[in-house]
Structures are given as C-alpha cells and as structure tokens.
C-alpha cells in the first residue's frame, strides 16, 4: 500500500534532520512529506538538504491542525492510501510507525493512535498537564464508550476513507482530541497501540502553563460541541 509519512514542523531546524533519517531507517520505502508550518528558521532548507523528504512550506503559521491537513490534502492528491503522522520535534520514535500502521494495513482500524500510556502506568511529568490529560481522557472514554488513554498524542495512522473526510473538515488549534470525537461520530474505527516517546531534544514544547489551561478548556468545549454535531457521512 502506498504510504506517506507526514511530519508537521514549526521551527524544528535542530530536530527535523534526525527525524527524517530515523523514519527512513525504519521505513525505507515510505515517502516523507515535511510540512513546514511557516517556520522562521531553516526548517525547510534543512529538510530539503536530506534529499529524503518532500517539503511543503506554508506561507505563514497555520497551527498544527492546518499543517497536518495540508499533508492530508497532499496525500489525497497523490493517491496515498495510508498516512502516518508524527511530530517533527523528535518526540515520536520512528520505530513506532510499524505499530501504528499495522492495524491500518490489516484493515482493523481507520484511525490508529500511538499511545504513550497504554499498558503502563507512567504519569506525565507536569502535574497540571497530567490532570488535564486525565480529564480529557475520562471525558472521551465516557462519550465514545471506548477507552482512550492518550487523546493528545499526535502519533497517528489513517486510512484513505478517514483522510478523505479529514480533508474536508479539520479542527485548527489543538486538533487531536477533537479528531477522535469527529471520526468516532462518523462511525470510523479507532484503535490505540502502545508506543514509546522520548522527551524533547531541543526547542520548547508549544504548551506553557497558562496555555495548558486554555488548552484544557478549549478541548473540553470542542469535545462537548462535537457531541452535538450530527455526523457528516452516511455510512
């Protein structure tokens, strides 16, 4: 199956090369698309220099949702049947791709989430974020009637029907939890697999303390609103 690895990157000139190399080691046949989300550094140049990735450069910073969707649009245009998305900061270890892609290739799921919490009890380092993630996870578990352990993980695999829908609509600010609700509402099958994640190598996580609070409230709101929406697809 034709597979595309989508890597959204915003100011990741220090990490992006390592990420691309790792992905190529694990999946030599897969094609890589880096979406430079309007970086002010050399992310595009560094990615192009590896000669192992195609690079789309956005004219300004759209936010993670807009960047990821750009990758999906590219995938649809070029007829890719499977997409794996992982972050450009080196947090997601490339060998996890195999686990994330497996249920898609076997036809067991439409969306696969690489979870850092599945099957182990390793709490997150920051208390506020830990609570936030627990609350979001609990909310989703109740609403979806399916246990989601890592709703904010950006390490994900998609099949073609899921991509076609997400191309039409994709949440913008913090899309990960909303994407789960949206796909579930439209009767897509979601599966979590356990993956290992590393602490960030360089640069700062996009979430500060105040932002995490805003993030929590925004996500909770978007989840509640998503429940009220009727499904787009008739399946």
């Amino acid at each position: 199956m034709k597979t595309l690895i989508v890597i959204p990157a915003y100011n990741e000139e220090k990490n992006i090369e390592g990420v691309i190399e790792n992905v190529k080691e694990v999946m030599p046949a897969a094609e890589i698309l880096v979406v430079d989300d309007g970086s002010s550094d050399q992310t595009t140049l560094v990615s192009q220099k590896t000669k192992k990735a195609t690079v789309v450069t956005l004219p300004y910073n759209l936010g993670i949702g807009g960047a990821v969707q750009t990758g999906f649009k590219y995938a649809q245009e070029h007829g890719y049947e499977t997409v794996v998305r992982l972050d450009g900061d080196g947090q997601h270890l490339a060998k996890g791709i195999i686990k994330v892609i497996e249920p898609i290739l076997k036809g067991e799921a439409d969306l696969v989430i690489g979870s850092r919490f599945l099957g182990l009890d390793r709490p997150h380092s920051v208390l506020a974020r830990r609570i936030g993630q627990k609350v979001i996870g609990l909310l989703l578990t109740i609403i979806l009637r399916q246990k989601i352990t890592d709703a904010t993980s950006g390490f994900r695999g998609y099949n073609q029907p899921a991509l076609n829908l997400l191309n039409k609509y994709y949440p913008s600010d913090y899309p990960e939890p909303e994407e789960i609700v949206f796909l579930k509402k439209n009767k897509f099958r979601i599966k979590e697999v356990a993956v290992l994640m590393r602490e960030r190598e360089a640069g700062n996580s996009s979430l500060t303390a105040i932002k995490s609070v805003y993030y929590g409230v925004k996500v909770a709101l978007s989840i509640f609103i998503s429940i009220l929406r009727s499904p787009i697809l008739k399946r």
Binding site: V56, T57, L58, P59, L62, T70, Y74, S172
Partner: peptide, 13 residues
C-alpha cells in the same frame, strides 16, 4: 484564509 494558504503551499511545491 487557511484553505488558501494550504493551497499556496501545495502549489509552490
């Protein structure tokens, strides 16, 4: 605006 900039990025490529 978002759709336009995505289109610009893809077209530039």
């Amino acid at each position: 605006n978002k759709n336009l900039s995505q289109e610009i990025g893809l077209l530039n490529l």
